[in-house]
């Protein structure tokens, strides 16, 4: 077994998501043998991310300022809000370049097994935003799993009576893939969501 600082580092690394004991050990030895300057940069980055990064007061996306880059952008429309589970989902939708509205980051999905209910998510904050009356369409882009679907259904029940259009991202076939390799659930959903060609 390792001792002292090295053991501490391995233990801390091992607590990171996706890092098992073997990987933790490998990373620890990499750090140990790395240039002191490189290690300083890493530890600085770690400290700064905690000091500087917070969440946007409007959409709860990660930001270094009170309002995030997207909420500050005057060229974007307030009429559409896209609801996602995590900040990383904002990046995913942004990469498409298709969406010119604003976002709302819930901070997770309804998951009773993990004790997460609507009150643990930023749903009340979303309702406050919607009450401002600017929003015409709410796009639900929660994950296509049981928890994400339940969250979407819950939000739809809550928001529809307000007269706002509620839409859900389509789930279907990956572009550029082969039909024969699609799993049954995906293919089944794609069938349900098929559209008429004009």
């Amino acid at each position: 077994m390792y001792e002292g600082a090295l053991a501490d580092l391995i233990e801390e690394l091992g607590r990171l998501p996706g890092v098992g004991p073997k990987s933790a050990q490998r990373i620890a030895f990499h750090i140990l043998s790395a240039d002191a300057h490189d290690v300083d940069r890493l530890s600085d980055a770690l400290k700064r991310v905690k000091q500087l990064v917070r969440v946007c007061e409007i959409c709860y996306n990660v930001s270094e300022e009170e309002r995030c880059r997207i909420c500050r952008d005057g060229r974007r429309t307030d009429e559409n809000i896209c609801v996602v589970e995590e900040s990383k989902d904002v990046i995913a939708v942004e990469r498409t370049g298709e969406f010119r509205g604003r976002y709302h980051v819930l901070g997770g999905a309804i998951n009773p097994l993990e004790g997460i209910g609507p009150d643990n998510l930023r749903i009340r904050e979303l309702m406050t935003r919607l009450q401002a009356g600017e929003t015409k369409e709410l796009i639900l882009a929660t994950d296509p799993n049981t928890e994400g679907e339940a969250t979407a259904t819950y939000l739809a029940l809550l928001v529809k009576p307000m007269g706002i259009t509620v839409s859900r991202l389509a789930s279907g076939l990956p572009v550029g893939g082969d039909l024969e390799y699609a799993d049954e659930v995906t293919l089944g959903r794609a069938f349900e969501g098929r559209r008429v060609l004009d």
Binding site: I110, P112, P118, A150, T151, T153, Y154, L157
Partner: peptide, 11 residues
């Protein structure tokens, strides 16, 4: 939390 029951009912 019970308000979310309806969402689970659907699924």
């Amino acid at each position: 939390d019970l308000r979310t029951l309806e969402a689970w009912d659907k699924q």
